[in-house]
Computed example of a mutant assay.
Amino acid sequence: MKNKIIIVVNTSWYAFNFYKELISFYISNDVDVYVVSPDSDYFLDLISLGVKVKRIQFSRRGLNVFSDFLFVFRLMLFYIKTKPLFVYNFTIKPNIWSGITCRFLNIPYVNTISGLGSSFISGGILRKITEFLYKLGCNSAVDNLVMNEDDLFKMRDIFNNKNVKLNKVSGTGIDLNNFRYVLPTISKEVRFLFVGRILKDKGILELIDAFSSIDDVNLVLDIVGDFDLGNPSTVSKKEFYEKINSDNRIFFHGYQKDIKKFIESANFVVLPSYREGLPRVLMESLSIGRPILASNVAGCRDLVSPETGFIFESMSSESLSICMRQVSSLKTNDYLKLCLSARKYAEKELNQIKVINHYYSYLQLNNS
């Protein structure tokens, strides 16, 4: 009989977009993979990989006693029926509620804390409740994985227990063969690229203000991403379009399934986020050989060095504007050296094979 694992995520897109290579690795090693998600948007894509899918609805945001209890109850029934050897939980709600379920059923599990989220940015009572629930969901895990140094220190403070396992992993890692180095286009035009949801927490408003403040016809800003209207940090379509329509150098491309071509066409990739785990788009950009501009916050600053790009202050359009002016005037030779050093960093630090082997090691240890 094949070993069975269950991966629990807050969207099917998250599982397919960030972990399809990990999933494919498990399947190629004769492991049955189940993905649990509250939506079915990417179920056909996951099924094409050989995944067995299960939709169990839950509210992605906030605390809802009835919804969360129902989620735990349905998870419990599914785990009892499926009898997994191991469970991998990704994002806050699965970390907490699937973690508690696994603890109750004595199923070994690993939590991946991909970022501490808006509840930690806003603070207050919601943060205290989230910290308490994290303790319940993480205390019995085989391991709890974070993606940056800031989250590592914060989770140590939250747990305050030497017996709770906690380690750092290099995000999702990057398939270096898929995201190969591509020589950038050198011309008078300098293209900046933002990839992410249209949220205040992603710094999209500061980015537009910063870019629009620079009076240079040779600069272009491409924005790739979708609206997330249920998110408390959402930007209304009206506000967003009013801002970008006032500058004919800004191009909005909406959601794109494949962003690789946009990164290849860019000269710099910008992420002015307020907080991240370890941003996938910045890792992909470095792998392709594009220098990054990132805010000085958890997750982003972990990827910025003199060899990879530039840093600016979070929530400051002025700081970002200065940074964009600086990089747009780089000499060609200096820029090309930076592109090559970005790729070398990705090869050394972000190889996906290391991340896949790390996750697989838990299953091997549990099955030995």
Results as ranks from 00 to 15, higher is better:
Y14C: 04
V217W: 05
D228R: 00
I292V: 10
E347C: 14
A342H: 11
L365F: 15
E349N: 08
V327I: 03
S170R: 14
F310M: 06
S233Y: 13
A15I: 13
S119W: 13
Y241A: 03
S319Y: 10
H358I: 12
I125Q: 07
I7T: 01
D228K: 01
K202W: 03
T185L: 09
C339V: 10
P279Q: 13
K93D: 00
N333E: 09
R74G: 11
N111E: 14
L229M: 02
N167L: 15
F211H: 06
V142T: 12
I259G: 00
E239H: 07
N357H: 14
K165H: 14
P272F: 04
F120W: 13
N64W: 10
V269S: 05
T101A: 09
L282H: 09
S119P: 07
K52F: 12
T308Q: 05
Y19H: 12
L85T: 08
W97V: 03
G196A: 08
I47Q: 08
K162Y: 10
I311P: 02
L278M: 13
I204A: 00
A210Y: 11
S98W: 06
K237C: 02
G225E: 06
S187N: 13
V36A: 05
N106E: 01
V31C: 04
L282T: 13
C339N: 02
P232Q: 09
I6P: 02
S317H: 06
I322T: 03
K168C: 05
M147F: 15
V31F: 14
K261I: 15
A210F: 12
K238N: 10
L286D: 09
D32H: 01
N163A: 04
Y241V: 02
F192L: 05
K337T: 00
I96L: 11
N64H: 11
R127A: 12
L278K: 09
S114T: 15
R197M: 05
N245W: 08
E349F: 14
V281L: 07
M1N: 07
T172E: 00
H253W: 15
V164R: 11
A141I: 11
M1K: 06
N177S: 12
L152D: 09
I100V: 14
V72Q: 08
S12P: 09
F159M: 10
K337L: 00
G123Q: 08
Y335E: 02
Y359L: 05
L199M: 12
P94E: 07
I56D: 02
S319G: 07
Q352I: 14
N111V: 15
E349T: 09
K154H: 04
I214Q: 07
R325D: 01
I208M: 08
L152C: 11
S265D: 01
L293S: 06
K188P: 03
L330N: 01
S321A: 09
G123V: 14
K93I: 14
N161V: 08
S287I: 11
R55S: 08
L133M: 12
